[in-house]
Design a protein around this nucleic acid. Sequence first.
RNA 1: GCCCCGGUAUCCCAACCGGUAGAGGAAGCGGUCUCAAACACCGUCCAGUGUGGGUUCGAAUCCCACCCGGGGCACCA
Length: 822
Amino acid sequence: MDSAVEYDPERLQQKWLPVWDERQPFRSGDPGDDRPKKYVLDMFPYPSGDLHMGHAEAYALGDVLARYWVQQGFNVMHPIGWDAFGLPAENAAIKRGVDPAGWTYENIEQQKTSMRRYACSFDWDRVLNTCDPEYYHWNQWLFLRMFERGLAYRKDSQVNWCPNDQTVLANEQVVDGRCERCDTVVTKKKLTQWYLRITDYADRLLDDMAQLEGNWPEKVLLMQRNWIGRSTGAEVEFAIEGRDEPVTVYTTRPDTLYGATFFVVAADSDLAAELATGTPAEAAFADYLEKVKQTSEMDRLATDREKTGVFLERYAINPVNGERLPIWASDYVLADYGTGAIMAVPAHDQRDLDFALAFDIPVKTVVSVADDGAGDPAVTGEATSGDGVMVNSGPLDGLAKDAAIARIIEVLEERGTGRPAVNYRLRDWLISRQRYWGTPIPIIHCPDCGEVPVPDDQLPVRLPPAEGLDLKPKGSSPLGAATGWRDVTCPQCGGAAHRDPDTMDTFVDSSWYFLRYLDPHDSEQPFAPESARQWLPVDQYVGGVTHAILHLLYSRFFTKVLFDMGMVDFTEPFTRLLNQGMVVMNGSAMSKSRGNLVRLSDELAENGVDAVRLTMVFAGPPEDDVDWADVSPAGAKRFLARAWRVARDVTSAPGADPAAGDRTVRQATHRAVHDATLAVESFRFNVAVARTMELVNVLRKAIDAGGADDPAVREGAEAVAVMLSLVAPYTAEDMWSILGHEPCVALAGWPQVDPALVAQDEVTCVVQIAGKVRGRLQVSPDIGEEELTELALTSEAAVTALDGATARRVIVRPPKLVNIVP
RNA sequence: GCCCCGGUAUCCCAACCGGUAGAGGAAGCGGUCUCAAACACCGUCCAGUGUGGGUUCGAAUCCCACCCGGGGCACCA
């Protein structure tokens, strides 16, 4: 051993990083590796600046699992890459007047260096950057395959527009009416944009969640279910007076059709405009529409907003009873859900009731709600939406809700004026972005041929250099100004044409990156299907809950499309999901403006990589937030030093037979390993660490009591080194070395547990009298029920309590408890 | 408003199927080391599990109601 007799994290980091770089213990691509596979995936980072505390937590947690599976003898693929396209990088580049590419690659290099030092078990041969042409080439290729299948299409519609970022946003990127990135209030704009037909997959996205049940956080599944929002009901056709074509509405409550007293069309729909034209209400409608357009998305979302609308002086005819229903235009009906028109049943729908009461429209009860005293909705102002008995509903009278729904659908189908229908909240995924730093959409617009795909052999369509382009957001893509890039000849007719100037949403990049890790340099295909069969699906995915809808939903969608294309043989990409919490400070998110930012680099300098990693893992359950004010990296460092000194103080030779050692110490070791194993497998990493600490305490005491040369102490110290290798790789490696072993401790193998040493020799049995602990017995763990009863009844506590009487009842739970009820 | 998760010592957190409430850490306090201090080491104090009811021989754990905190959904017909 050298002169280093004290624990020095900095020294260990400098000592071992080069050794690992040389030995590459985490390579996963070796042919002939016959270990069973595990694919452990961390969500890849965005290269905006250096790594921060949030990265430190996420990657520490993922690494525990990856390293654990390696120790358990698996061939673990644990890759890392960079999600390198996107607005933050571009905005930062604009601010500094530099090229987004240069800026991005510099950040990637910096993060890569930090990441290596942070010592995660990544396979560095598999690194990918989504902004590399060799990556986005395959974004374009996949886009074209979707285009061929009709899954990528262009349409003109009202889209979400962020006035700050000057680009459109997907529905998923609008949170509470604001831009997910910059918090600006989102407005609407009518634009022709590219969409991916994710709605075609709505049912499968919903139904395949059964595969994930129990392996994904319930919360995430619930959020996805809500987001997809499947509802079942019926379409009903209403004839319109003075119009040839009927108008179809969607309703989940066709049973209440007899209760319809008016009809509403979305004010901003084409249908509303058409119906208003030529009526006395035309001017009033125009005024109203103007007002609606000025209402921001924010205000529109307010739940207790007053109902507004305008009567169009037109009537719809109820197909079941011929009643004339006045047609109103209102903004409480959405143009892009269902058909943009509804039948209004005020008695049994709160929104319709609010509207009816505001405009003095009759309310007609058709469901008699059970005798719970619910009054007439028109009087109480409370619509009754529950089950009940149908009344005033012709052939439906007397039926309950479900029967009435079935019956009315039959009636409508017979007459050809209705049918069962399913609707979704989910909308198609808008992927066009009017920004520079993204994947160019590989379509050429030709005046004669229309939308022409760029031929595969001309991919990738590379981004033109940013130099000379004005990247400032101005509502149209900067690429449109790159004339040399934009103007091309049509691949079909050879005429003058131009490239689509938009770039793809960066969520396209991350929707399939887990497949590209198989071979990030494959120049023939996005990934090799046979490699996918070997490695996929991902066994363990680790990432923040912020992506509960967006990224995870899109990835699931892409996977199903790839399945349909025959490129993968599974339908769900991520078998198990762990959501880690955030790192906060004094209960709130860290931010510069709040002044509560903790710099990762400071923490690493102060306490070392291992102590920071340990702090993250030990703070609590991984899903919980880590409050940096509540944890103690200094304490973590102290513990690591204690553990390290235990190894230093071991004097027995490597290979000494532990069986010759102290049995109590051995029991402590085997129990610690046993418990830690269960804890890691169930994501209770903090508990696994606590068990390791406990063992270190035992070993310290044993050494201080003269056991430095006890082979059982060596056995324990080696177990500590291996267990610590999941969390504190530098410390663990050095301990392993001090204990006389060659690197790498990461490959040492998880310690075998001897069940005989885990079992207790003797356990304390509690003797309760009427549920209260009154005595204790030392008994064998496999004591029989009868023997234990006998022992308990003759124990001092029992004899005193019973005072000669017979127990009324004796509950015996060997070996730990006897409860005597006198 | 609806749904989900959580409330255990001063703080962060453990507690397998209901069976002795405490594993681990932090802070505090006392001590050892030191000229002194820091570090380190040793020892030690601290709760009856948010509140109220119920089930049970027995409840932190199961059930009901409520309070508090966090999260999700919220004109989707």
